[in-house]
Simulated scan of single mutants.
Amino acid sequence: MAKQKIKVMVCDDHALFRQGLISLLETEPDLTIVGEAVNGKEAVEMAKEKKPDIILMDIRMPIMDGISATREIKKNIPDVKILMLTVFEDELHIFNSIQAGASGYFLKAKPIDDLINIIRKTLSGDAPLSPEVAGSLIKELHKRNFSAVNSYNITEKELEVLSEVILGKTNKEISQELNIAIQTVKNHLSSMYRKFEVNNRTKLVHKAAETGVISDSEYSAALWTKEKE
């Protein structure tokens, strides 16, 4: 039996970029384009009809912006994955996108192969948070002066897994780094999702920073190490 293709919807008001992206995605055997929208309002309606697995959502669009559209779509279709697309590495937009329910964030200047890889990883629940995005989140969270109180009973091993997640490691890479089984990594992640009341890695990192489970300095050190590799 043939493997079911990933249903992708693209939402961007720039026709040249949107059509070029669709053309490239259509060359991938495991992806199928189920719809394209030119503004957030159209995306909300199309998502209800097409029921995509993942939506590539531009942030700045007319009529309704991508963040507002993401918020509305997640209310109607909680399980859909949404990746935000933008040319700007803006802390506030990244923060608000994740708050709205986005699973990740992709800079348009990055290679298309990176986006295709992120699409697949996001659908498998294994999408890493890039150092650029993690760094931007830290800056915005720092501005908001969240209380640094660890009241979530996170275990030492869970903190180790979380530290690897921040570095963008996949479950397989974390299992190799910590010398534990992949299923054990998944169990630790599931436990943290439950404790933080989140459902993906991006929200987990955001919540950990918000509550002070991991400090800004720990994040910065991890990102600096990643950049030096």
Rank of each mutant, 00 (worst) to 15 (best):
K186L: 08
K41F: 09
E132P: 00
L92A: 15
I59E: 02
A69H: 04
L83D: 05
E28P: 01
S191V: 10
P62L: 06
S130N: 05
D58E: 05
E177A: 15
A181H: 14
R194I: 04
I116C: 04
S151W: 09
I63H: 12
G125L: 01
S175N: 08
M64E: 12
V8D: 02
D79R: 13
V198M: 04
L107Y: 10
E89I: 05
N76P: 00
A47M: 05
I98S: 04
H14W: 04
A134K: 00
I22P: 01
L204Y: 12
V149C: 02
D216M: 13
I73A: 05
E28M: 06
S103V: 07
T27A: 03
M84C: 10
D216N: 12
L25G: 05
R60K: 15
G135E: 03
A209E: 04
W224Q: 12
N76I: 15
Q176M: 14
E160T: 09
V161R: 03
N187Y: 12
I63Q: 11
I174K: 01
K172Y: 15
L167V: 09
R201L: 13
E26L: 10
P128D: 03
P131E: 07
V38K: 14
E42S: 08
I138S: 08
L178Y: 10
T122A: 09
K143N: 12
I182T: 14
K169E: 12
S190E: 13
A43M: 03
R18N: 08
S191F: 06
N150A: 10
E156L: 08
R144D: 03
T70F: 05
V165H: 02
I116A: 07
E160Q: 14
K51W: 01
K81C: 10
G66P: 06
T202A: 14
I116N: 05
R201S: 08
A222V: 08
N187F: 07
I98P: 01
D90E: 14
K48T: 09
S136T: 11
K226P: 00
H142V: 07
V185M: 04
S23M: 10
E164D: 13
T27L: 12
D79P: 01
L178M: 12
E173T: 14
Q19M: 11
V44I: 15
L56P: 00
K226W: 11
E28Q: 15
K186H: 09
V185K: 03
K5E: 05
